[in-house]
Design a binder for these strands. Structure first.
Lengths: 209, 209
DNA sequence: TTCTTGAATCGACAAATGTCTATTACTAAT
DNA sequence: ATTAGTAATAGACATTTGTCGATTCAAGAA
């Protein structure tokens, strides 16, 4: 048992094997998810979360520095799970970009739609890094001599995709997520794949959001 | 005196004329700015801010729902001020994009460099909308038939620019801001101006970050 | 000037936060 | 089975938070 409980303050280590730690964190995330269906995030206290999780309040602080860190962790875990379920292949880069965009749209629509809060959250901090990592992976496989630093492209594209998806989500009378994903692809793809070949995968109709 | 004090909860109305309100808000922002040079944001209490501003703590809550809202407001005000000082002309669109990118880089470097905090903040929520508004203005002047919704392009580009600038700022051994701004321009410009004419303004050397 | 409106102050309050120090319970290895 | 290490619990603590009602003060209009 040589586990540091909080190796990086505020960013709980996921590489733990101790079942007690996994269990506590899972229960805390689940409880927050449950409570978010009933109340606004701001109206939920750490005590409530701990109670719902049948854990002591001090245990909460053993894992997360505050409420926001838990929300962050929960969001990241859920998003990771969603994109893992739909295994995204990088055989077709444009298709991968569209699939990722769709994933972000779907995630926003499905999880933050509960009572309609957490739109103003620092979701940015949890789902953007995941998207960024996927782009980085994709660009590495692509293996073309990059115009600029690959990591910068990945970051930029990730923020662009998230910003666009977020805007779509906050819109009333949303267009279908698939359509939005296609639009995002056409707008963002030149960032990732130079400004050379776009419109290769058959979406020639002008996408108007 | 018919001023609603908080027309939108959490987003203090800027259209007030009452000198008392302006004065209080200015003093609170100034105090937060001062305190941020000494301590981390998390370690500053509302009481401290109010004391420094020689205002009652209750007065604080009359204007902002919490600390974060004040930080948000302060950030937005400062960034607005910075980009107003360097009047950005939209005669040359690519130049404008580069100038905006430079503005974001400079802002991050100059204001969040104090003791090095507020990097993890929801700055996103205050400076991205400003950038977005500038892009929207520029695209309106440009007046070309857009491939997609102009507002979406503005949002996407704003997030892309901010994300890239933020990454640059968090990097150790930063390249000069001007160089970064040029890189951001080449990466983001196809988002705004279709993927047709880039490299028109003489930056033909390959920018490597 | 006088009067009205509402911003700012003051004191007080319950609730929540974040941090301790034991103490207990359970995991993993010997 | 015993043991060492650490997660979880329990209770307590000083602070901070957000809100309230009552009061004072000042800006703008008559």
């Amino acid at each position: 048992m040589a586990q540091l409980l909080q190796p990086e303050k505020g960013t709980p280590e996921t590489g733990t094997t101790d079942p007690r730690i996994l269990r506590s964190r899972r229960m805390l995330m689940d409880s927050l998810g449950r409570l978010l269906k009933k109340k606004e995030f701001e109206d939920i206290s750490v005590q409530e979360i701990a109670d719902d999780a049948t854990l002591n309040r001090a245990t909460f602080y053993l894992h997360y520095p505050d409420k926001n860190a838990l929300l962050q962790a929960m969001t990241e875990a859920r998003f990771r799970d969603l994109i893992k379920r739909r295994a995204i292949t990088f055989t077709d880069c444009h298709g991968a970009l569209r699939a990722i965009a769709l994933g972000v749209c779907d995630y926003l629509a499905e999880t933050t739609g509960c009572p309609s809060q957490l739109a103003r959250m620092s979701l940015e901090g949890s789902i953007i890094p995941v998207v960024e990592g996927m782009f980085k992976e994709g660009l590495a496989l692509h293996g073309t001599a990059p115009r600029v630093d690959t990591a910068l492209l990945a970051t930029t594209a990730a923020w662009a995709v998230f910003g666009a998806a977020r805007r779509w989500f906050q819109t009333t009378n949303r267009v279908p997520a698939e359509e939005m994903a296609a639009t995002i692809e056409t707008v963002v793809s030149p960032v990732l794949f130079g400004a050379s070949q776009q419109l290769e995968s058959g979406n020639t109709e002008a996408p108007l959001v």
